Simulated assay, not measured.
Amino acid sequence: MTQDSTAPDPTTISYPVTNGPDIILPAPYFAPGIYLTPTVVQLAYHPAHDGQPARVDAAVTGWRHSYGVRDEINQQVTMRYQNGFTGWPTWLTEQARQHTPDDRIATITTAELAHAIDNSTPYPIELDTQLCQFMAGRLLEMLTVGKRLDHPVWQPEQEPPPRPQPEPEDPSRLAAGTEADRIVAYRSPHWMYLYCTRHTDDLGTTWTPLTSDDLPDGGLCAKCGADVLIPQDGAKA
């Protein structure tokens, strides 16, 4: 395969590894008890180019061991990893995400991707949290996923502005309202008739409002016969 000479150079990061996890060697190196003890990790971050997405490659160099004894050949072996993170050791995948040089391959955790999956489903579909986390883990195995840091899903939620507090009621109005609520009946100018509050729309201003204090023994409405001390709800009779 001819390498594209117009592709931008990758950003390469190399660092030593001490006490790193051992790597089981694949065929043709694999045999029972054969493993690689890493000493150097090299990561190459390739930017997106000519319609191809950004990607990262890795090379892990170390000593080959057999049943705990370093190979007598005394030569280091290099394992190369490509194709996204498919088949990569977990620790190497985490380091590749941690050392990414810019936001072309943004660091993203399983929990963050699960959050994005949950927020991408159409209303009113709700996905179970464990399902979102499982899907996120599988996607990170298959894909090199980047996140747009300017997208609203990654922004902290804004607190709603405080609502204006209602003004306290005027005590004089409260007192007046309380007094009005206590009116139970109206008496005619010549003390002949007593009307409950359901029949006072056309009485004019000459009728006298009465409270329960004015009628300690109650009274019957001349219009409907109801006791005026009993709350009268509903339509006029």
Results as ranks from 00 to 15, higher is better:
residue 133 Q to T: 14
residue 88 W to I: 02
residue 144 T to Y: 02
residue 114 A to Y: 06
residue 157 E to I: 13
residue 136 A to E: 04
residue 145 V to C: 03
residue 159 E to K: 14
residue 91 W to E: 13
residue 105 I to S: 02
residue 145 V to K: 00
residue 119 N to P: 01
residue 152 P to M: 07
residue 143 L to W: 06
residue 115 H to Y: 08
residue 137 G to A: 13
residue 111 A to Q: 10
residue 149 L to A: 13
residue 145 V to P: 00
residue 124 P to H: 08
residue 89 P to F: 08
residue 116 A to Q: 05
residue 121 T to H: 08
residue 151 H to N: 14
residue 100 T to W: 00
residue 86 T to F: 14
residue 148 R to M: 07
residue 139 L to Y: 13
residue 124 P to F: 07
residue 99 H to Y: 08
residue 106 A to T: 12
residue 119 N to S: 13
residue 120 S to R: 11
residue 156 P to M: 09
residue 128 D to W: 05
residue 129 T to A: 14
residue 151 H to M: 08
residue 116 A to S: 11
residue 107 T to V: 05
residue 112 E to F: 07
residue 97 R to H: 11
residue 156 P to R: 15
residue 131 L to M: 12
residue 120 S to H: 11
residue 127 L to G: 02
residue 157 E to Y: 02
residue 95 Q to V: 06
residue 134 F to T: 14
residue 146 G to H: 02
residue 118 D to T: 11
residue 109 T to G: 13
residue 102 D to T: 04
residue 132 C to Y: 05
residue 101 P to M: 07
residue 118 D to I: 06
residue 119 N to R: 15
residue 113 L to E: 01
residue 113 L to Y: 06
residue 89 P to G: 07
residue 102 D to V: 00
residue 116 A to V: 15
residue 92 L to Q: 03
residue 148 R to Q: 10
residue 156 P to T: 12
residue 100 T to N: 02
residue 152 P to R: 11
residue 94 E to L: 09
residue 133 Q to A: 15
residue 97 R to F: 06
